[in-house]
Amino acid sequence: MNAPVKTDWPDRLFETLKRGRVAQVGYVPDAGHARLIERCRADAQIRDVVLTTEEEGVAMAAGAWLGGNRSALLMQSSGVGNCVNMFSLMRTCRFPMLMFITMRGEWEEFNPWQVPMASIVEPVMKLCEAEVYRAREPDEVEGIAERAVQQAFGDERIVAVLLSQQLIGKKVWTK
């Protein structure tokens, strides 16, 4: 029997955001981020903002920083494509942009429509001059997130943390 997969990484990621004084969290509803979103919604000091599309969260992060707030943007891999032009705002003005991206389309993915965007997330983010990190194991999420918080707000950079699909599990299509 396999060891049970650790599932507390979203809680540790939440605590990292709290320690990092993140005050606004934008997100598009996402199964992989469900627990983290739930924690943010329950926290009185974090303003959670549900978005209609991920690029809204990029612009919101710029506004938040103009007003002195740290923010984070949660999305799945398909959302990266929606953001590309808005990243020009972050690069031109050197705004901090902290992103946590749950990956679809890679590990035991049933839906081939998820693959094209997921397969280019890393090169696209690098072309946008983001620092890109990938967490594959539950125990490495927190450390990578700590680094990402420091780099995004300390250096005013775009930082993308990719959360591999094996952290999240495969989507169940038949019930």
Partner: peptide, 14 residues
């Protein structure tokens, strides 16, 4: 397309 959302982030922060 970003002006309104910049305004939202700013309004929430200030």
């Amino acid at each position: 397309g970003g002006a309104a959302m910049i305004g939202l982030g700013l309004a929430l922060a200030q």
